[in-house]
């Protein structure tokens, strides 16, 4: 007994020493790998503040001599970037709010109401969620033209509210399926109707999950490309993603302008990332295991 414990302990010290030696190389390798992930952002930031003359003289790898912001400013004015930001915020915000409401209503019927055939309804929403947008894009384009909604932000808002709500329904139904029944029964006995139960009890209790969904819908919609590209052709309605993607596709930008575009595209994403980091990582975990 004693001997075995002792050998185990000496074995452990040997191992600890060994891991201490091998510890730093592994950490170093991981840090280098992480740097490789971040380096593209850094290069873009460095080059966006170089003047064209400096860029052509020193190339992309040198550090900038000073802050040259005219490139950013002229790009901002040329593409009316402020308007693009407003469009993106408007569309993503409206979609996030609308899709959360729609998801809550659906999931209330499926997860708490346990309507008949709910497995099928749920399967339907899941499949709608994975459907490639390519299979919807032409009819959506055609129908929105017929309805006079083509090239309006509203059309994109409607379509994405529904598409994002498919995922929200799937996730929330699972969460609400485990909602403590006693609370609902108690409220019902106290005379609350289903509508009141939903808004006064289910929604407040599920607020953390709804917050995760809101953030996800916002960022996903912000990043969407195909449908907005097809639906929003006029400059005044385009989102950040579409405007930058189209510019890039036209191959009309010089190096400084490309960097200005990239930096202005990256910045909102980094802001969201820093603001929502916890929600994002927690949310992915929730979404994946459900």
């Amino acid at each position: 007994m004693t001997t075995s414990v002792r050998t185990a302990r000496t074995g452990r010290t040997v191992r600890t020493v060994r891991t201490a030696v091998s510890r730093y190389p592994v950490l170093l390798a991981l840090v280098i790998a992480a740097l490789f992930m971040v380096v593209p952002f850094l290069i873009v930031a460095v080059n966006a503040v170089k003047s064209p003359a400096e860029y052509s003289a020193d190339g992309p790898l040198s550090l900038p001599d000073g802050l040259y912001l005219d490139g950013l400013k002229s790009f901002w004015e040329r593409v009316d970037f402020g308007q693009k930001l407003i469009n993106s915020f408007l569309i993503s915000g409206a979609v996030a709010a609308g899709a959360v409401v729609l998801s809550v209503l659906n999931a209330y019927a499926i997860g708490i109401g346990r309507i008949r055939g709910r497995t099928w309804v749920l399967a339907f929403f899941v499949l709608a969620n994975v459907l490639p947008q390519e299979a919807l894009v032409y009819p959506v384009y055609y129908l929105s033209k017929e309805a006079g909604l083509y090239d309006t932000r509203l059309s994109v808002i409607i379509v994405f509210t529904v598409i994002q709500a498919a995922f929200g329904t799937y996730l929330l139904s699972a969460v609400l399926g485990r909602f403590p029944r006693e609370i609902i029964e108690a409220a019902r006995i106290d005379g609350a109707n289903r509508w009141q139960v939903l808004w006064r009890i289910v929604v407040p209790v599920s607020r953390p999950t709804l917050g995760v969904l809101l953030v996800f819908f916002f960022i996903w919609t912000w990043n969407e490309f195909l449908l907005p590209l097809v639906m929003l052709i006029s400059n005044d309605n385009q989102t950040v993603s579409v405007a930058l993607g189209v510019l890039q596709g036209q191959r009309l930008m010089d190096a400084t302008m490309t960097n200005a575009a990239a930096l202005l595209g990256v910045l909102p994403a980094i802001v969201f990332f820093l603001v929502f980091q916890r929600t994002l990582t927690r949310g992915i975990a929730v979404g994946a295991v459900k």
């Binding site: 990043n223 990256v266 994002l280």
Partner: peptide, 25 residues
Amino acid sequence: LRACFYLPQVLPIAVAGIVWSWILA
């Protein structure tokens, strides 16, 4: 470290494309 690896995931794909097409020019 995890945040560094996750960062490209929040980037709009159009923007990631601009960044890389310039790096790979």
